[in-house]
Amino acid sequence: MENAATRLAEVHANIARVCKPARREASSVTLIAVSKTHDAPAILPLIAAGQRVFGENRVQEAEGKWPALKAQYPDIELHLIGQLQSNKADEAVALFDCIHSLDRPSLLTALAKAMDKAGKRVPCFVQVNIGDEPQKGGCGIADLPAFLEAVRAADVPLAGLMCIPPADTEAAPFFALLAKLAADNGLTGLSMGMSGDYETAVMLGATHVRVGTALFGGRG
């Protein structure tokens, strides 16, 4: 419990520190605790320490642990931060409060249909393939304006843009590019930055950072 509280306080202090020179309020940054691969006993100490926003990579894994936790702590917000298959759209809309990986027309169609069926609108970040990496999900930069138009037309709430920069490379230029793309398209939400680079991301405008290891320690 103490460990979780200490780690959480440290991440919040780091966010506050980098917000100062950027003239931002620390409260403008949402800290998403990435709980993928961690079971409920590992998650509970962070909840007890006050963390209320969590991120999962897979629908199936989240379904196994979060309904019970959310019943116990109804103020928890659950974000899907991993790739989403179109055939899991119904389950994702039922379970999650926000989706960070909307990246293609087929998924947009499936999510819009699932939201209509559930009578519930779930805010979505559009994931951008910021490093133009063929193996990674994400909308291509050139396709972004048209895709954003389609998202708005489908009445899917647009939370902003999300990216995962190429591994083993300086993240700052990619974060700066995502911030520019968001501004160019009239969006303010920026989901970017993980345990190794969230401070850089906050400096460059991140509104949502996805932090796992710095909060949980090693992988579960």
Rank of each mutant, 00 (worst) to 15 (best):
E63Y: 07
A183N: 08
G55R: 01
K136M: 02
V211D: 00
A146Y: 05
R210Q: 00
E25L: 11
C19P: 02
Y198R: 01
S86R: 15
I43C: 15
Q51C: 15
D168T: 15
E199R: 10
K180N: 09
R121G: 10
K36R: 10
R58F: 13
T6P: 09
A179T: 08
G50F: 13
T30Q: 01
E199H: 08
L107N: 06
G160F: 08
K136P: 03
Q85S: 08
I99M: 00
P165E: 02
R152V: 07
V93Q: 09
D39V: 05
G55H: 01
V93L: 09
E133S: 11
G160Y: 03
E149Y: 02
H79V: 08
E63M: 08
A26T: 05
P67N: 08
A9P: 08
K36L: 06
L102I: 04
P45H: 11
D90E: 12
M162P: 04
T109I: 10
A172Q: 14
L148E: 07
E170W: 06
H79Y: 10
D155Y: 02
P67C: 14
A167Y: 02
A114Y: 11
N14S: 15
H79S: 05
E170R: 13
L95P: 11
V93M: 07
G55Q: 13
S28D: 11
E63R: 09
G186S: 05
A159I: 04
R52N: 07
D116A: 15
M162H: 01
T109L: 07
S86L: 13
Y73T: 02
V59I: 11
L80P: 11
M1G: 10
L8M: 12
L8G: 07
L204A: 04
A49P: 09
A62Q: 08
S28T: 12
A176T: 12
E199G: 06
G212F: 00
L8W: 15
I99R: 05
L78S: 06
A94R: 15
T109Y: 03
D116Y: 06
M115I: 13
D116E: 12
G217L: 06
L46G: 07
A110P: 15
L111K: 12
E91K: 15
L148G: 13
Q85T: 10
V11K: 01
G220Q: 12
L204M: 12
R24I: 09
F125A: 03
F147L: 00
E56P: 05
A201I: 14
S27V: 02
D143Q: 10
P67D: 04
E91V: 01
A159R: 04
Y198D: 02
L44N: 08
R104M: 06
T188D: 03
I43L: 14
G220N: 12
N14D: 09
K65L: 13
Q85V: 07
K113N: 11
N185I: 12
T188L: 03
V29Q: 06
R23Y: 05
